[in-house]
Design a protein around this nucleic acid. Structure first.
Length: 309
RNA sequence: CGCGGGGUAGAGCAGUCUGGCAGCUCGACGGGCUCAUAACCCGUAGGUCGUUGGUUCAAAUCCUUCCCCCGCAA
């Protein structure tokens, strides 16, 4: 199969690597352009670009796909199918339906649930116990195309977006290879998604990093883990901004008001949440500092005020 | 040169403004107490104060060179 690959972050790179290792012909990799990522003016290439270059694959980085920007590439490489994994741009129909087998997408959720750009984060933040990967045929809607196959994976209470992304990449890559075989052999059976069960997972915004301590410990834990590693849940203790990581449910204490710091010392940081539930924060990162165990930070920095915001 | 914080014992920090014995909370190690413990008590070890040069009787502290880490913003 002649494949045109489109994707950007690490999960996409994983899938691309699997396609290459399986011996498929990848005619080109389309990815988002380099963009400034860190302090200073440096810009960094996407993970897909790095991998493609190291494997000698042609890389295209169009700013926009509108106005037939991809037409020359499509005519030149004549792909049998387009594989899209977390590309980050909407594909116009002229591109979607160009190849013989159309375009297929690896989406990191059990469709029709969590359609959209942040399915992994939203599944964790929604306190889901399981999620998965779905391979589907793309149509003009956002993740609304007919599904081919899917695979489930459990979400553990320690999973973060980072760890869950890895799990999904691990099952997603072989799932796509499987799908390609089905398509090539003509055995692919696509099923319509049931829109009645659809939910939408919008992009994560920086403003969502604030924590509402009146929520339950379980909800806050889910939020912290869903926002890890980016943008990370934030709170303020003694006027210092802290990013929060590695939450763990820590029982109940009826008297404690939500937002009260119950413990901050060598045992770590424990905060009261809604309904008297307690949440232990395993790791913190003060502004300007590295991520560290909460116990370490509060050891050398006694609290002035036992309140968290 | 986008804005900003930081580098001091194994960890986390104070001390820097205003130069004057290298400190704190932990950890480690040794001992003690306790029915017992993540508790408590006594003690020990552990430092090139990121790096370069300078000012000074004296520099973690003031001036200077470079390196490294991180937050914001994207």
């Amino acid at each position: 199969m002649r494949i045109l690959f489109m994707g950007t972050p690490d999960i996409a790179a994983h899938v691309l690597e699997a396609i290459l290792d399986a011996g498929h012909e990848v005619t080109a990799a389309v990815t988002k352009p380099d963009k400034p990522r860190d302090r200073g003016k440096k810009s960094a290439p996407s993970e897909v670009k790095v991998l493609a270059l190291s494997r000698g694959i042609r890389v295209e980085e169009p700013e926009t796909l509108k106005n037939g920007a991809l037409t020359p590439l499509l005519e030149e490489t004549n792909p049998d199918v387009i594989v899209v994994v977390a590309y980050g741009k909407i594909l116009p129909e002229s591109v979607l339906y160009y190849p013989k087998y159309g375009s297929i997408n690896v989406h990191a959720s059990l469709l029709p649930r969590y359609r959209g750009s942040a399915p992994i984060q939203r599944a964790i933040m929604g306190c889901e116990k399981e999620t998965g990967v779905t391979v589907m045929k793309m149509d003009k809607g956002v993740d609304t195309g007919d599904a081919l196959i899917s695979a489930k994976v459990a979400i553990s209470p320690e999973d973060t977006t980072e760890t869950l992304t890895k799990k999904l990449a691990v099952i997603g890559a072989p799932l796509l290879l499987n799908a390609l075989e089905l398509i090539e052999s003509g055995e692919a059976k696509f099923r319509k998604q049931n829109d009645a069960y659809a939910t939408y997972a919008p992009m994560i915004r920086k403003e969502e990093s604030a924590v509402d301590w009146s929520c339950s410990a379980e909800e806050i834990s889910a939020r912290i883990r869903g926002l890890d590693p980016w943008p990370a849940a934030e709170a303020e203790v003694d006027g210092i901004r802290l990013k929060l990581f590695r939450p763990r449910l820590s029982g109940f204490c009826a008297e404690a008001q939500p937002g009260t710091v119950v413990t901050a010392g060598k045992k770590g940081l424990i905060v009261a949440c809604g309904g008297g539930s307690l949440l232990e924060i395993g790791e913190v990162q003060p502004a300007g500092k590295k991520r560290m165990p909460a116990a370490a930070y509060f050891n050398g920095k006694p609290l002035k005020e036992n309140r968290i915001r």
